[in-house]
């Protein structure tokens, strides 16, 4: 009985007794969820356009954040550093297409996936070599983002909204809108969708696969940069971010592998779910459950709705 009470009733009593803490938890979960969603967005973009499950997206986030900070430390103004990072990502996208993807055309999805694991290791080694492994702070103020926090008194307590988190949420929304327009209205966007639909048909109407791949990897790089800036602002810029990147997998399962809005909504479900579970149910299990709770949600989805919330119903079930 006591266990049942602790599981079923006590957490809700606590939520009701301290609504300000509950709202704070919701907000934290929301912000974390936005960032998970942004990482997942990078996966979705590449998966949509080329069918490659790009395992290196989390390390691209780390690379973006690290190189941005390092450029700034060299004395380059913040905004020019951003442009330099973008140029770097364009070159990287081109190299990946030239040296890896083009060589592996027509290969099985598993092999492409494994090649991106190889790419991950190359980037980890190179980035550690060049930038060093020491965590450093993200240059938030220099980029012109507001700092400090808003305090919103309610229910006898107060809820803190970090300004940087608010900007992250706003920018995430803007980016999704831009991407949605880009995918549905522009010529390149139509090309991307065509490639995703059928490689051969796209080739036959004159769409250059190679060019599309470079573009999509570059766009994923931009998403990685935005994610890197905001994630770096919340914690330090270090390789630990990569482990958090694994959280994008459950997000994809929930949202579906091919849906942009699915990535964000899946991210929010994971972010909110694990925050609330950690705070209210975590102590029963000895806390630290954030590490695996997301995967449990994903497993439940896999068993009952394997295509995710917004995914295409193409999943092969056994």
């Amino acid at each position: 009985m006591e266990i049942l009470y602790a599981i079923l009733i006590a957490p809700f009593v606590e939520m009701g007794a301290y609504p300000d803490l509950f709202i704070q938890a919701l907000w934290d979960g929301f912000v974390a969820g936005t960032l998970y969603g942004l990482i997942a967005l990078g996966f979705v973009l590449i998966f949509k356009a080329s069918g490659v499950f790009n395992f290196s997206q989390p390390i691209l986030v780390v690379l973006a954040a690290l190189s941005l900070v390092s450029f700034y430390k060299l004395g380059i103004p913040a905004w020019i550093s951003v442009i330099l990072v973008l140029i770097m990502f364009y070159i990287l996208a081109w190299l990946v297409e030239r040296l890896i993807l083009r060589q592996l055309v027509n290969q099985d999805g598993n092999i492409l996936f494994m090649s991106t694991i190889g790419l991950t290791f190359i980037i980890i080694g190179a980035a550690q070599w060049i930038f060093g492994g020491v965590p450093s702070a993200m240059i938030v103020n220099e980029l012109g983002f507001p700092n400090g926090s808003l305090e919103w008194p309610m229910f006898g307590g107060g809820v803190y909204f970090e300004m940087i988190d608010v900007s992250a949420a706003v920018i995430a929304v803007i980016m999704i809108v831009i991407l949605a327009v880009f995918f549905s209205k522009t010529k390149i966007g139509r090309g991307l969708r065509a490639v995703a639909d059928d490689h051969q048909a796209a080739l036959s109407v004159g769409i250059s696969l190679n060019q599309i791949w470079v573009i999509v990897w570059f766009v994923a790089g931009i998403v990685a940069l935005v994610t890197g800036i905001f994630w770096g602002a919340r914690s330090d810029v270090s390789f630990a971010l990569q482990i958090i990147g694994f959280k994008a997998l459950p997000v994809l399962i929930i949202g579906g592998f091919t849906s942009i809005q699915g990535a964000i909504i899946g991210g929010l479900i994971i972010g909110l779910g694990e925050k609330i579970f950690e705070i209210y149910w975590g102590p029963l299990l000895g806390s630290g459950v954030e590490g695996w709770f997301a995967y449990v949600i994903a497993l439940v989805f896999l068993l009952y709705r394997p295509q995710g919330l917004f995914g295409d119903k193409l999943i092969e079930r056994v």
Binding site: F121, I124, Q128
Partner: peptide, 10 residues
Amino acid sequence: SIIFLGVAIV
């Protein structure tokens, strides 16, 4: 050696 491993796999 990490880079080597990545290159080897690709």
